[in-house]
Simulated assay, not measured.
Amino acid sequence: MAKVKYYYDSENLAYRKIKVRKRKKFGVAVLFLVASALFGFICFVVLLNTPYFETPKDRLQAREIDNLKLNFSILNKKMDQIDDVVAAIEDRDNNLYRVYFNKSAIPDSVRKSGFSGKNRYRALEGYDNSQLVINTTKRVDVLSKELAIQSKSLDAILKLAEAKGDFLSAIPAIQPVRNENLKQMASGFGYRTDPFTKARKMHEGMDFTAKTGSPIYATGDGFVAKADNTASGYGNHIVIRHGFGYETLYAHLSKYKARAGQRVKRGDVIGYVGSTGRSEGPHLHYEVHKDKKVVNPLNFYYGNISAVEYVVIAQLANQENQSLD
């Protein structure tokens, strides 16, 4: 039962009962109900936006987001591998193909430049994982541009090559020892530890470790200028003059297959791996000379290996170790 309320009537000096109108009671009741409903709705919205209240749909979306993050992570790892291969192709393009034809190298500022002008990725902004998506999209765009530039460059090189068939045949362009006969890349071009004096000295070629008797191949067309053991340290060795300023040397042979004055084609067997002369074990010491200056043979293995194999060989050849001669 509701309490009865009174007020004091000062004129009549008496207490009188306060009468509440039904309309007012109804209004108060309605206001209370509206306020309660509003408060309940606010609480419900707050709960929906807290991690403590998760619907099945929220859980499904969370799993989808986690899967997308994983896929983006895998995609970025694959792009890392593609970047390595593209970098190797670009290196060979600048330092080999373009050098052959006296073409200027394409600078990195052109190959790896971004995209100027308006913001291409505005539509991807404003989401929880926007940065991940934007960064990955940028990498794909830059990689696509690099491949487009490289494709155009190789098209230009191909046109030049079609007019210079003899020149290309003369270039020492393959490994002198095939991969199936190769034990390891023992030492590369550069400063290495001498196996006899233990001092660091310039190693002017590459050492290919293989079994005695493994075939050695001419790396380009030319004629055999020398096939003897008169040069100090090289033991049995062959020198091929290819023309256009190129010359190759093959040292420590066990025996010869070619003789001085003989013309050879790229891929012809000219001798066999051995350990004659100043040598620590069976291997081929191989040098490339251009215009009477020694150059790194690694820049010339484009005729019989893939870009991925080139990356592996480059990593092995660039290790600081001891040479075999």
Rank of each mutant, 00 (worst) to 15 (best):
M185C: 04
A170G: 02
G235W: 02
D228H: 12
I174Q: 04
H203Y: 06
I240T: 03
A170W: 03
G190R: 03
Y246V: 09
G261L: 00
G261V: 06
A199R: 13
T193L: 09
T230N: 14
V239M: 10
D228K: 04
A170K: 08
Y234F: 08
T209H: 06
G222S: 06
V224L: 02
F244L: 00
D194S: 11
K226E: 15
Y191P: 06
K198R: 15
K201D: 12
G213K: 07
Y234L: 15
I240K: 03
P215Y: 03
H242V: 06
Y217H: 01
S232M: 11
P215I: 08
Y191M: 13
I238H: 01
Y217R: 01
N179S: 14
A251H: 10
G233Y: 07
K211N: 14
Q175Y: 12
P172M: 09
F196W: 07
A251S: 11
T248I: 09
A210L: 00
Y250C: 13
H237Q: 05
V239H: 02
M206R: 06
S187W: 01
F167T: 08
G220M: 07
S254W: 07
A186M: 06
S169M: 12
D221L: 07
P195S: 08
G205I: 05
P215T: 08
M185E: 07
L168F: 07
P176F: 10
H203M: 02
G243M: 04
R192G: 06
A231F: 15
D228S: 12
D221T: 14
T197M: 13
L182W: 03
V239Q: 13
